[in-house]
Nucleic acid binder design. Structure first.
Lengths: 200, 200
DNA sequence: TAGATTGTTAATCGATTAACAATC
DNA sequence: TAGATTGTTAATCGATTAACAATC
């Protein structure tokens, strides 16, 4: 699946750009990334001919194209529900990419944290989530709460009109077809790792 | 790839088990999981015939078999380097699965946290990592530090004899073939989500 | 022009799905 | 026994790789 590879292309191109490299060929990318040169050309050509015969690809142009494909031109407004360590980590992480991702609101159920702030954003009471979403347009809802609360939060997000949900709870939540869902099940990744270790 | 599906089978089987369901057919699993019944039978049959014609699969037996395939019989000793919010979250997460995953040691470079404890485990100075690994057998090294530090930490883990690395830093680290590597690049997941949202 | 490297078609490979005989 | 459902083979589909003509 090419979409799984695009963010990785992007990361490498950003890296090359930072190091002042101007051009790159599918052969060079192949050596660094481990995909075949053929696959890389196929992947990039899916979206349009970004290269030039005999030359290769211009690093900055290619990165710009991939950003556009990924939809990173737009700005996305996010709401995070569940501000434990994980929610806090995600919030901090997003804060580094203010141009693309705006953390608009934080929610939790714990009275001990409600009212406090992260990077100037107040943590609101989770029971205000529906009301907040009715008043404010949010593109992406982030679930960093426990799995018992996850489906309910997802339902609120859906009712509130988010376009996508980024779910960190270890449970498969139900969403209608028009809502994009991305799961980050840490347990799945760990179990996959353990499988490789065990079967080695 | 069947290994990507196994943790998900496992989660559902655990769920069915908790709800007291004793048997399940590939058709039922298909409805819940969205894979075809044919694929489910194919997947499970890769590892051995766990079912019974005319009956289906015994939930608890199948879960036990999948646990064994995933290598969840063994206990894995973990060391976590980088105890910010993310490292803290991972540590807390692992603490819930003491039988499978033992958090043996925590490391950070920040003097403000060195010496403090999480769930009774002291946070050590990261400069003691090599010495610690020389004395203590660790199965899985977890990198929750920033990307600048990631490769150095990975090198220490490798030299220190870990079997696998669970990497949360947004960088592709180099590891020799005999070391299993599992990346949890949050940025990749988010970019994938944004791609789906954008192209809808 | 000659060399390099893409864009693109065709061939291969692997994974998914369909079908059905085996059997509980 | 009849019905259900697996295990397994064969067919299909899609993704990856190879090859090479186009062209910068």
């Amino acid at each position: 699946m090419v979409i799984r590879r695009l963010p990785r292309y992007r990361r490498y191109l950003a890296d090359l750009e930072n190091r002042g490299v101007e051009r790159v060929s599918s052969g060079m990318l192949s050596e660094i990334l481990g995909y075949t040169a053929s696959q890389i050309r196929q992947d990039l050509n899916n979206f349009g001919g970004f290269g030039q015969q005999g030359y290769g690809y211009k690093v900055s142009d290619l990165k710009t194209e991939i950003d556009a494909i990924l939809g990173l031109g737009e700005q996305y407004r996010m709401a995070i529900v569940g501000i434990g360590n994980l929610g806090h980590a995600v919030s901090n992480y997003l804060y580094r990419y203010l141009d693309e991702f705006v953390v608009a609101a934080l929610f939790d159920v714990n009275p001990a944290v409600i009212g406090s702030e992260i990077a100037g954003i107040e943590i609101r009471n989770a029971n205000e989530l529906d009301a907040y979403l009715a008043e404010n347009a949010i593109d992406i809802g982030v679930i960093t709460a426990n799995k018992e609360a996850a489906q309910g939060i997802a339902d609120s997000f859906i009712k509130g009109g988010v376009r996508g949900i980024w779910n960190f709870a270890t449970i498969d939540i139900d969403v209608p077809d028009e809502i994009c869902l991305q799961n980050e099940h840490l347990s799945d990744g760990l179990h996959e790792l353990v499988y490789y270790i065990h079967s080695k």
